[in-house]
Design a protein around this nucleic acid. Structure first.
Length: 702
DNA sequence: TGAGGGACTTAGCACTTGGGCA
DNA sequence: TGCCCAAGTGCTAAGTCCCTCA
């Protein structure tokens, strides 16, 4: 156990420098083993936690000592394998692909592939020529082995009409949506029953959640951006494709579809339970434990501890690369410039990519065309990064960096590599000479977390409301997301939604205005009080008129609906229904109320529907002021964040201890920031992760 | 030394869920 | 109570980085 930097108090334990090793040896209490969880006090929990932690450290050390290479991960692993999707169910007879306007009778294998495309007919993918081409090439290949039963020869994509199939899938979808909640529940329970045994495994005797236990179903490859293979057929997997990794003396699971596993291995130096090679790019796919598992939690903590470690070295690294920006050796100068980009702009390392992948780049793979010098000191970055997300940044840089980029581009074509003397391997090797395990990726984690910490320290309104503090947190989170270029597509209805919110805000201001006017009507002295004399600036005559008209129309509509509903109820009870005149009277009242509002316009006086004493009105204004303030914050947050994805940085780059300590310090419930699943991952509900993510010390710093 | 294999993290999109509001 | 939309979750593509081998 180590002490924190804060006054020697016991804080979160530090991991060893090199350890992505698994957790060992935690035993459940008898009560827990019997399925009745022990209700422990906070002190007991902490005590248990520390015992567990110490045991963990000892186990790891023992294992490492025994092997010498630190490669041991787990001792026992027991699981039920992977869950295959159900076999293909042929479509009803009337649902067919049409070719040259005529229905085609396809065997199931070919029909399934046609169905994959049909299901995507309304998406952008289906309109993409590369997607269509790749799909059709594979479809023809499948048709060779499974030709149409009626002898139709399918030759061109353009002659295929998938609409009947698409309509069928849509109607099936609608049927599913239209099910009663009882039916949905029943379906879900049945599914749960099938999946239950795959959801968890036993790792060193501990029950752990498995992540993606479902085998990926067949379909069309949805590569991102300009992936040359998008639309290609992803094959249906069979047990013969899957390698199972399991403890040596454990029972080998039986696949839920006919067949036998490709291989069963007992590799305790890795964390996957199963893997297979996908047929599109030849990549391995893995079944891992869930993010909330101890293994992933441990690994996460190691990652953040490594980033914290960088704090001790970063000044020296920066000093060195700043010097090397002027190095005589070109390779050193290029490396220093690349390090500057990675550090200051949070660029990814940028490994080389193959011809058969989308053309995306990172720092080391930048080409001359991606960086433009904009004198006197700005660089314009414009390239497609990971997931083909555009990185555009017009940013002032160190004068020497600016100069270097010009030098590196000299005599090169636009598609030549900017850093022709730098590779990610060499760069990472250089970084590791400063600190074991230091790579380009660590800078992203470090800069993200340190930015959050600094922003929260500098901009949290200590006396603000929870809402205001959360807005400050979101702002800091957003800064990080922008730094890391985490984007999302703007939601379809964003514009409409903002318009609605703006209208709602005006509505709140209108209510405030009416309350003020009611005060003035009660006592003229309120006109002179500053808190009530300020006008709601953006409410003009025209808007007020339209708002009051809309209020009236809405009230009438409501009254009509209520009238119908009341009468339906009365009929059901066998009672006499209300006469039409009742509704007429109600509508008359609404119109009278509206007429009163019209009369009040421009008088600075108002009458409330239910009269209130002045002090109650004052209270109502105060609470409305707060509501308006909060609502404005909400709107600003929404608009500023419409293209920024906060989740990615929250989950992957921000040390949860920063958030945990901040919440403790500023009395903000952690659930306002982390979802239930994340809280579990970060340690507020499970004992395992308490030591690392749950900082009870509000002064903990990254 | 570089290419390729392998294991893991990071990423955005699509679908589902649930909470607030009328 | 039902509807709508935002938040949450699942899925799987696309990165990083380490290791091995020729």
């Amino acid at each position: 156990m180590e002490t924190s930097e804060n006054d020697g108090e016991i804080s979160t334990p530090k991991p060893k420098a090199k350890s992505s090793k698994a957790t060992n040896g935690t035993k459940k209490s008898k009560a827990e083993a019997n399925g009745s969880p022990k209700k422990a006090s906070k002190e007991e929990e902490e005590e248990d936690t520390y015992k567990w932690w110490e045991q963990q450290q000892q186990d790891e050390q023992d294992a490492a000592d025994a092997l010498g290479d630190g490669s041991v991960k787990w001792k026992t692993l027991q699981h039920n394998g992977v869950l295959f999707p159900p076999p293909y169910q042929p479509l009803p007879d009337h649902v067919k692909l049409h070719y040259n306007g005529k229905p085609v009778s396809l065997p199931p294998a070919a029909e399934e592939v046609a169905g994959f495309f049909a299901a995507m007919l309304a998406t952008d993918h289906a309109r993409d020529s590369v997607f269509q081409e790749n799909f059709f090439k594979d479809f023809l290949r499948v048709l060779k082995d499974a030709p149409p039963k009626d002898g139709t020869v399918i030759e061109t994509f353009e002659s295929c009409d998938f609409r009947k199939m698409y309509d069928h899938f849509e109607s099936e979808k609608a049927k599913k949506q239209g099910m009663t909640s009882a039916q949905k529940k029943e379906l879900k329970e049945a599914q749960n029953q099938v999946e239950e045994k795959y959801k968890t495994c036993l790792l060193d005797g501990r029950k752990e959640k498995v992540g993606n236990f479902r085998v990926e179903p067949p379909g069309l490859f949805r590569g991102r951006g300009d992936h040359p293979k998008k639309g290609a057929l992803k094959n249906r997997l069979r047990p013969e494709d899957i390698v199972i990794n399991i403890g040596e003396n454990e029972e080998i699971p039986v696949p839920n579809v006919p067949g036998t596993w490709k291989k069963v291995v007992h590799d305790n130096t890795v964390t996957w339970l199963a893997n297979w090679k996908e047929n599109i790019n030849g990549n391995f796919k893995y079944v891992f434990l869930a993010a909330s598992s101890s293994l992933k939690g441990q690994s996460d903590m190691n990652k953040f501890e490594k980033a914290r470690e960088l704090k001790k070295h970063v000044d020296r690294i920066r000093k060195d690369y700043s010097q090397d920006l002027r190095a005589k050796v070109m390779a050193d100068r290029q490396r220093a410039t690349a390090m500057y980009f990675i550090d200051k702009l949070a660029l990814r390392a940028g490994n080389e990519k193959g011809e058969d992948e989308a053309d995306t780049v990172g720092c080391c793979s930048l080409r001359c065309e991606h960086v433009t010098a904009d004198p006197p000191d700005k660089l314009i970055f414009d390239f497609l990064g990971k997931d083909s997300i555009r990185y555009y940044n017009n940013v002032p840089v160190d004068p020497q960096v600016f100069k270097n980029v010009r030098i590196f581009k000299e005599g090169k074509d636009h598609d030549d590599s900017l850093f022709d003397r730098v590779t990610t391997g060499a760069l990472n090797k250089h970084l590791a000479s400063y600190m074991p395990g230091l790579t380009a990726k660590v800078f992203r984690t470090y800069n993200a977390s340190i930015t959050l910490q600094q922003q929260l320290d500098d901009h949290t309104p200590a006396d603000g409301t929870v809402m205001e503090k959360l807005a400050a947190y979101n702002k800091a989170n957003r800064m990080v997301a922008i730094l890391c270029n985490h984007q999302r597509s703007v939601a379809k209805g964003h514009g409409d939604s903002m318009q609605k919110m703006a209208d709602k805000l005006k509505g709140l201001k209108y209510d405030r205005m009416k309350l003020r006017h009611a005060l003035f009507a009660l006592d003229a002295k309120y006109r002179k009080k500053k808190a009530f004399s300020e006008l709601e600036s953006d409410l003009d005559e025209e808007w007020i008129e339209s708002w009051e008209d809309r209020l009236r129309d809405k009230d009438i509509e409501k009254a009509e609906k209520k009238f119908i509903k009341d009468n339906e109820k009365l009929t059901a009870e066998g009672k006499e229904t209300l006469e039409e005149s009742v509704l007429k009277d109600r509508i008359k009242d609404i119109r009278q109320e509206h007429a009163r509002l019209v009369k009040e316009r421009g008088t600075d006086k108002a009458e409330l529907k239910r009269s209130k004493p002045a002090e109650k009105i004052e209270e109502a204004i105060e609470s409305l002021d707060q509501k308006i303030k909060n609502f404005k914050l909400q709107m600003e947050d929404k608009e500023e964040g419409k293209e920024v994805s906060l989740g990615t940085s929250k989950i992957n780059y921000l040390d949860p201890r920063i958030t945990s300590a901040w919440c403790a310090k500023h009395d903000v419930p952690i659930t306002k920031i982390f979802s239930k699943a994340l809280v579990q991952k970060c340690g507020h509900q499970t004992l395992f992760f308490l030591p690392w993510a749950m900082s009870s010390d509000p002064d903990w710093k990254f």
